Simulated assay, not measured.
Amino acid sequence: MPSYEAPLVELKRIEKSYAPRTATRSRKVRAVRGVSLSIRRGETLGLVGESGCGKSTVGRIAARLLEPSGGTLHYQGTDITNVRGKTLRRLRQHIQYVFQDPYASLNPRFTIGRLLEEPLKYNRIGNRRERQREVVEMLERIGLDAAYKDRYPHELSGGQRQRVGIVRALMLNPEFVVLDEPVSALDVSVQAQILNLLKSLQDERSLTYLFISHDLNVVHYISDRVAVMYLGSIVEIADVHDLYERPSHPYTQALVSSIPAERGAGKRESVILSGDLPDPAALIGGCPFRTRCRHAFDRCAAEMPDWSEVAEGHAVRCHLWNEEQAGTDVRQTEIFASAGGTGL
């Protein structure tokens, strides 16, 4: 897959498989299938796809909360796939994770002040007075006054809890933060507040984000680049504006066509996917999207597509963009290219 500059975080051919949980399954389930991603310093890379496609698994591997079954994870050019002990503990200060459900990730028996102070205390940063001062400053930064440090998570609203979850991840001043569906459970007005907070914190602290979501409008608002994931594989990656204006993979086209058109905008072609997600354990080879693709042909079942560049910085993994196939089946390529002309 093309790479354009030295990344802060890089996933190289990451695999993650799980053993069968029932007697009726004999084959391992491949949740992540050879995912390669480069996340540049200071950018927000959006990762989108349907529920169950492996987005959160990729995010947890990127944050070293899960170990991959194969492939390597690099941070600042260093392989950190197998680091342990004190090295991993130091690494945690630079890489943090914001969970989807803030209520489930906050200890209900701890006050907000203790929850925020705990990372500093665990890493032996400052004395008690300095840590408490830092807690108050961070609360005020996210729009909560100092009195909130004595409250418990159940006393906060969903938006307030999410703010606490975000600021807890930032207490150690990390460089890289994985945000796993951080606004999916919030009202639209609260979503906007959280997204604006994330943007301002990124500018202030030079943060790098991996933003995981199934909401394309949210991803469009906050991301610099977007990677589209389907059934454990990345199928397209591009600059956010290029991807939304010129979706080039059939799955991306279906996702983009589902976004309601703005008033006054031209009518967008609706792409309806047929069938349901296939059983991941049943997929052995070929393109994972072939069972639902309206353009699928024999080659799609025989081999996994290579990456092809649609434009600079815009790559797609589809046989219909492969130059060799374009030369042997011009008709299908023309059909595919015309289907991509759905602007926002």
Results as ranks from 00 to 15, higher is better:
90 R>P: 09
75 Y>D: 07
40 R>W: 10
47 L>P: 12
72 T>R: 15
71 G>Y: 09
36 S>K: 07
41 R>G: 08
101 D>F: 13
88 L>Q: 06
60 R>L: 05
59 G>K: 03
103 Y>M: 11
60 R>Q: 07
66 L>P: 10
85 G>Y: 03
69 S>I: 13
89 R>D: 05
69 S>R: 14
84 R>T: 05
96 Q>H: 01
82 N>P: 03
93 Q>R: 13
59 G>N: 02
54 G>F: 09
79 D>E: 00
98 V>I: 01
52 G>I: 07
73 L>M: 12
58 V>C: 03
51 S>R: 04
79 D>F: 04
47 L>Q: 10
56 S>N: 08
68 P>W: 03
81 T>Q: 13
71 G>R: 11
103 Y>F: 15
100 Q>T: 05
59 G>Y: 05
76 Q>M: 13
51 S>C: 09
69 S>P: 13
40 R>A: 14
56 S>L: 08
52 G>F: 12
70 G>R: 14
100 Q>D: 01
78 T>F: 14
102 P>W: 09
49 G>S: 09
54 G>I: 08
85 G>V: 03
68 P>N: 05
97 Y>Q: 02
61 I>P: 02
50 E>N: 13
53 C>Y: 08
92 R>T: 05
101 D>K: 11
75 Y>F: 15
91 L>K: 04
103 Y>S: 06
91 L>G: 02
64 R>V: 00
94 H>D: 09
99 F>Q: 07
61 I>D: 03
65 L>H: 00
102 P>L: 03
71 G>H: 10
36 S>A: 09
90 R>A: 12
41 R>D: 05
53 C>R: 06
73 L>I: 15
94 H>T: 10
69 S>N: 12
73 L>C: 10
62 A>W: 01
71 G>F: 10
79 D>N: 02
97 Y>P: 01
75 Y>A: 11
63 A>L: 02
77 G>H: 07
59 G>S: 02
78 T>N: 15
96 Q>T: 02
98 V>L: 00
39 I>F: 12
45 L>F: 12
44 T>I: 14
43 E>M: 12
45 L>H: 12
101 D>N: 15
53 C>H: 07
100 Q>C: 04
63 A>N: 00
51 S>T: 11
59 G>D: 02
60 R>A: 05
47 L>C: 13
58 V>M: 03
49 G>Q: 11
43 E>N: 11
76 Q>V: 10
69 S>W: 14
71 G>Q: 10
44 T>S: 14
69 S>L: 11
44 T>H: 13
67 E>N: 15
38 S>Y: 11
89 R>T: 09
74 H>F: 15
64 R>Q: 01
95 I>Y: 04
82 N>V: 05
54 G>R: 10
85 G>K: 06
51 S>H: 03
44 T>A: 14
103 Y>C: 06
71 G>L: 09
46 G>C: 07
49 G>E: 06
42 G>M: 03
81 T>P: 12
36 S>N: 09
53 C>G: 05
77 G>D: 01
77 G>A: 06
98 V>C: 01
46 G>N: 08
79 D>G: 00
65 L>T: 01
72 T>I: 12
76 Q>E: 15
51 S>A: 07
42 G>L: 04
39 I>S: 13
42 G>E: 02
65 L>Y: 01
38 S>P: 08
98 V>Y: 01
52 G>W: 11
58 V>S: 02
47 L>R: 13
80 I>S: 05
49 G>D: 06
36 S>M: 08
95 I>M: 11
103 Y>R: 06
102 P>A: 04
65 L>F: 03
65 L>G: 00
68 P>R: 08
